[in-house]
Simulated scan of single mutants.
Amino acid sequence: MAIEEPKFSVLEKNPPFELRSYAPMILAEAQTEGDLDEASSQGFRLIAGYIFGQNQVSEKIAMTVPVAVEEQAPKSAKIAMTAPVNIESNAGKWTVSFVMPSEYTMESLPKPLNPRVQLRQIPAVKRAVIVFTGFNSENKVAEKTLELEEWMRSKNLQAVGVPRFARYNPPWSIPFMRRNEIMIDVRD
């Protein structure tokens, strides 16, 4: 059985870049601290606990992909930013998220028991994306983010928010088989 991914349509494709239109979705997310690997691992464990039954009705929720990690914007910053956005700023504070299966609504999802896990509805959104394989160090994520920002500039796309790093495969996957993405929301 295939693992569910968020629903999107490709508006433009120029490998490894894509411009996508995503349907509305619900995220389960957790705030974490540390470097990219520490934050990803900590956030994954928190949200995995929620979907594996640490919720008010002990209901198991199907796993989806990707697991996304984004650096938190400084509290004083405005949400609408223009490229480039440096993914290595803001002192190691991150938001790790899973997209909830599309069968759920905010009303039908069980409430998390852990207060660090939050549910959030996000509206339809347009995203610029770069797809890549292999290991994913902070340096590689920063490098791919810069490549995506350059592509966005060449297309006159304006960034809204911060870059998200998305992992689609478990850590034991063979590196050349791993699907990774950097996503940046863009102004419609």
Score class of each variant (00 low, 15 high):
Asn136Lys: 11
Gln118His: 11
Asn139Phe: 00
Val186Tyr: 10
Arg153Asp: 05
Pro101Trp: 05
Thr145His: 06
Lys111Arg: 13
Val65Gln: 12
Ile182Cys: 01
Gly161Cys: 03
Tyr22Gln: 06
Ala80Phe: 11
Ile87Lys: 00
Leu146Thr: 14
Glu12Lys: 15
Phe44Glu: 11
Arg127Pro: 02
Asn86Cys: 00
Val10Ala: 12
Arg153Cys: 01
Glu138Trp: 00
Ala124Val: 03
Asn86Glu: 11
Val186Lys: 06
Lys155Leu: 10
Ile51Tyr: 00
Ser76Pro: 00
Pro6Gly: 13
Glu5Ala: 02
Ser40Val: 03
Ala142Asp: 08
Gln121His: 06
Gln72Lys: 15
Ser102Met: 06
Met183Lys: 05
Ala142Phe: 07
Phe176Pro: 15
Phe135Pro: 00
Gln31Cys: 03
Glu138Val: 11
Val57Trp: 03
Leu11Glu: 10
Val141Ile: 15
Pro6Thr: 03
Asn180Asp: 10
Glu71Ala: 09
Met106Gly: 12
Arg178Val: 00
Asp188Ile: 01
Ile3Met: 11
Glu70Tyr: 08
Arg20Tyr: 12
Glu29Phe: 10
Ser58Gln: 13
Phe132Leu: 02
Lys60Asp: 08
Gln72Leu: 13
Glu149Tyr: 01
Ser97Leu: 03
Pro110Gly: 09
Asn139Ile: 09
Ala23Met: 10
Ala124Ser: 14
Phe132Trp: 14
Thr133Asn: 13
Pro101Glu: 09
Tyr104Arg: 14
Ala142Gly: 06
Leu113Asn: 15
Gly49Tyr: 04
Ile130Val: 12
Leu148Asp: 09
Arg45Pro: 06
Arg116Cys: 07
Ala166Pro: 07
Val160Cys: 01
Arg178Phe: 00
Glu71Trp: 14
Ile3Leu: 04
Ala73Tyr: 06
Lys78Ser: 09
Asp37Gln: 13
Arg187Thr: 05
Ser76Thr: 10
Ser102Gly: 10
Arg164Lys: 15
Gly134Phe: 05
Ala77His: 05
Pro175Trp: 01
Gln42Ala: 14
Ser76Val: 05
Lys140Ser: 08
Asp35Ile: 02
